[in-house]
Simulated assay, not measured.
Amino acid sequence: MKKTILALTIPALFATSASAVTVYSDEGSQVDIYGRIQYEAGEIGYQNDSAGRETKAENFGSDGEARLGMNVKYMLNQDVDLIGKLEWQVAGEAGDGAKFNARYAWAGFKFQDTTELTFGRSQDPLAQAIYLTDIMNAFGGAITYNSPIALDDKVDDQVRVAYAANGLDLRAGYAFADADKEDFANQNPGYNKENQWSATAGYTFPFGLGLVAGYEQISGNNKVGVTSNSQDVDAWLAGASYTVDGFYFAGLYIDRQREAAVGDDESKAYELHAQYNVDAWTLMAQYSKERFDAAGAANKYDSIDDLTLGVQYDLTAKAKLYAEYVISDSEVADGTKKDDQYGMGIQYNF
Rank of each mutant, 00 (worst) to 15 (best):
N166M: 11
L170M: 10
D156S: 15
A165C: 06
L151N: 01
A165S: 14
D153C: 09
A162H: 00
A172I: 01
D178F: 03
D157A: 07
A162R: 00
D157N: 15
R160C: 03
R171W: 00
D153P: 11
A177D: 09
Y163T: 01
A162D: 01
K181P: 08
D153N: 15
D183K: 14
L168W: 10
D152A: 12
N188C: 03
D180C: 04
F184R: 10
D178R: 09
A175D: 00
V159E: 06
N166Y: 13
D180S: 14
A172Q: 04
N166G: 12
A150C: 11
A172Y: 00
V159M: 13
A162C: 07
A172F: 01
D169E: 07
P189I: 04
V155L: 13
A164I: 05
P189A: 09
V159A: 09
P189Q: 07
G173S: 11
A179I: 10
Y174R: 01
I149W: 03
F184H: 08
D169T: 00
E182A: 12
L170D: 00
G173I: 02
A177Y: 05
L168Q: 04
A150F: 14
L168V: 11
A179S: 15
V161A: 12
P189N: 09
K154M: 09
N166I: 03
Q158N: 14
L170R: 01
Y174W: 12
K181E: 11
Q187Y: 05
A164S: 09
A150Y: 15
A165Q: 09
D156R: 11
R160S: 07
A172G: 15
V155Y: 02
N166H: 12
Q187A: 06
F184S: 05
G173V: 02
N188R: 10
D178G: 10
L151A: 09
D183M: 10
D153F: 11
F184P: 05
V161I: 15
Q158L: 05
N188W: 04
D156V: 07
V159N: 06
Q187N: 09
A179Q: 03
N186Q: 14
K181V: 03
V155D: 01
D157S: 13
Q158R: 08
A175Y: 00
A179P: 04
F176C: 05
N188A: 12
